[in-house]
Structure formats: C-alpha cells, structure tokens
Design a protein around this nucleic acid. Structure first.
Lengths: 216, 216
DNA sequence: AGTTTCGGTGAACGCATGTTCACTGAAAGG
DNA sequence: CCTTTCAGTGAACATGCGTTCACCGAAACT
C-alpha cells in the first residue's frame, strides 16, 4: 500500500524529492477515492506515503497547495485528452465516437484525476472548487472553438457555441462523477456509463444541427 | 446565528423536540454551504443549534442518519417543484420557460437543498451519495414520463426518453451546483446561471425534436 | 398527587488533528 | 576535505473530535 521512499538504488537529492512528491500526490488521489478533499488528513496521508507528517511541508506549504497541484495535474490529463482527439483527422461523423473512445481510454488510465474533478467540482473546499471552475471554463472555451469547425455549426455564434460546449462538459463531468461509485469498477457498469454518455452526446449534437444557426 | 431552543411560549414536549430537530437540520444545511458533509463536525453543529453535543443523539442515532434525512428533505423539495410545473397546463411551447421559472423560484426558497444535492451527489460519504443517486434516478424516471407527453416526443422509445431526461437532470444539478459559489449570491450572477440553463434546456429540447423518433 | 418519560446537561474518555521546533545524516558544492 | 544544504525525523503543543454515562427537571400520564 505505501510507496515509501526507500532508496534501493542510490538516488540524487532531486530525484528523491520528486519521487516523494509523486508519492504524496498518488497517495492523495488514492485516498480521495473514498473521501472528499476537505476531509483529507495530513497524518493519514503521510502515513500512507511512508514519511513523517512534518516532511509533507518540505513539498507543499499547506494542504490547499496540494489541492491546487492536483487540479493542475488533472487538467493536464484533460488537455492531453482533447489533443488526442484532435490528432486524428476530424472526420465529423465519427468525431463523437472517437471522442468518447478517447475519454474512455483516458478514464481507464487516469480515473483518479477525473474522479477528483467530478467530486471536487462542487465540493466543500473553496480554493479547490474555484480552481476547477477556472480550468473548466478554459477547457469549455477550447472545446467551443473545436465545435465551431463541425459541419452544421460553422455559422453558429460564439454564444451558442459556448452553451453547447457547456452541455458537453456537463455530460462529461457527470459521466466522470458516475465512475466514482464502487459499482463502476465492474466493467459492465463502466460500459453502461460510457454508452449513456455516447448516446447523450450524439443526441445533443445531432439535435443541435437542427437548431437555428444564429441568434442569442 | 444560533437558533437555540428557548421556550418563550410554553411548548409541548413533541413541539419542542420537532423544533430542535428542525434547528439541527437547518444548522447542518447552513454549515454545508461552506464544507462537505464528510467534514461536518458534531460539536460545531450542536454549538450552532445551541444544544450540547450529546443532545444530538436524541434525534439522530448517527451523523449518517442526519445525511439521509437531508436527502429525503431535499428531494421532497425537488418533487414539490415538478408538481408545481405540472400544476400549470402543460402548454408545450412555454414548458421550458415555466420549468426554469419554477426552478429559479425554488432555488431562491430552498437554495440549501439544491446545494446539498449538487455538492454531495459525487461527494465523499458513500451512504449519502448512494441515497442521492437512488432518488435522482427516481426523479429522472418521473421526468421521462412527463417528457413523453411533449409534442415531437410522443413516438420516442423509453430508452431515448431516459437519455433525454438524464441530460436535463445533469443540466439542472449542474446549475444548482453553480449556485454554490459565493459569487452566485450576486443577483446578476444568479440570473446569468439561470439564463444559461434556460438556453441550454431550450437548445436540447428543440434539437431533440429533430432527432430520429425511434431506435436505440 | 405520585410516577414515569425523556430532551437536554456536563464531565470525562481516549484518540486524531495541524503545526512548531531543534535535530540528523547524507548529498552537493567549494 | 570541509562546509553548506536540505529531505526527513521525532517529541511536544494545544485543540477538536465522537461517544459514554449518570444526572436533572419539567412535561405527560395514571
């Protein structure tokens, strides 16, 4: 369970420091599967890492700072995802399926990050909640510019594109939030959630194509 | 701040008990504006109520039970809302506006309930999260049967209606979650969130009317 | 009037919390 | 080789935690 900093092979100081920092972030993500950030305990956290409580302060000056680091990391994952989608040619009719496939793959690889965003988006710790809101707004704008290139949406105004992007982000984060539940560790349940997301996204985007192209 | 049980007018025993129970629920809802249920403290809670910590156990056998009571209460509010919408004649073209108006009014009157649902839906306390998921699934089904009566959706299958209902619930809970932020106490920000919800709901339902009527 | 019921009290319990401080020992740098 | 740097240590701190228990006093019941 604990990934303690045991230098089997001699390490440089900075290597060791980075490894401990990683271990703290990983332990936090692990414990955040079962509780909210607001109820994280420094002592339980450091115990899992295998260091003494005070050593934590060598890496973060406060627990809130840990939270912000987790937000950064989680949104790095999210941005990597959208880059992954763009990398494939944007054949518009397969875009949704491709997007959901990528999301599904990223959910597998980085479940803790998505769970963190879903859980703390409206969570109790103000500084974390605000950081997520900020990043999510940024992500939403990125998504809106991507949507602008889709067939049927070329002539949409920025306001409508923003609304649509907001809908997709809500669907995505909600799906990520569903994955929080222990049941979702069952592959079949996971598939069901993904499938619902896929169908809902398709429903929205196909519907949107029939939406009046301009106006606010 | 504290609404302590001071019997200015003589009360019956059951009246007093009910009043204290209410005070506990209200104090909890109040404190849950700033933190998650998982980090609620029995001592801070009872201090705000104006009773001694042990007195709490005269009303709830555990904090989790308090959480479940809050879930019940919050969904009673939500159900009252959908009843309110139905009470007006279901003139389909004004239904969205009417729904969002009702939601807005209910958000004013019962903000703490919606905030609770939004915040704990994916929160850290399993028993509360599961109770909300259960109630939300129920609400979703109710909504789906209402949607079935809307023009353009009469011939939809149950599966598609469920998907659509899920989209609406996500939009609604997300909007409720946005209200969590202290900024949302500014009326203009509130209006903005409501307006976004209104437009997104309209976008989805108008789009949905253009969706293929059958299939899975 | 006498007895029972019960919501609220206050002390006490053992334990976990975040943060402080002077410290150690090995890596880094002169 | 000697000095400086610094991640991690361990004791100590005051504070807050949930829960227990015997107790009180007024309402409720007979």
């Amino acid at each position: 369970m604990s990934s303690s900093p045991v230098p089997r092979v001699p390490e440089s100081r900075s290597e060791r420091k980075e490894r401990t920092r990683r271990a703290i972030l990983d332990a936090a993500l692990d414990q955040l599967a079962d509780e909210s950030f607001g109820s994280l305990s420094l002592r339980r956290l450091t115990k899992q890492v295998g260091i003494v409580p005070t050593a934590f302060y060598r890496h973060f000056s406060t627990l809130d700072e840990l939270g912000l680091a987790l937000v950064d990391e989680s949104f790095a994952t999210l941005r990597a995802m959208i880059r992954d989608v763009r990398r494939g040619e944007p054949a518009p009719d397969t875009l949704i399926d491709r997007s959901v496939d990528v999301l599904s793959a990223q959910l597998d690889a980085n479940m803790a990050h998505f769970r963190f965003i879903g859980r703390e988006r409206y969570g109790g710790v103000t500084v974390v909640r605000e950081a997520i809101a900020r990043e999510l707004a940024l992500f939403e704008r990125e998504l809106a510019t991507d949507l602008a290139r889709m067939p049927g949406l070329e002539r949409w105004g920025a306001a409508d594109l923003a609304l649509l992007a907001g809908i997709f982000v809500n669907l995505m984060v909600a799906a990520a939030g569903e994955m929080v539940s222990p049941e979702a560790e069952d592959a079949a349940v996971r598939r069901g959630i993904e499938d619902t997301l896929r169908r809902q996204a398709r429903m929205v985007v196909v519907g949107a194509a029939g939406w009046r192209p301009l106006g606010g």
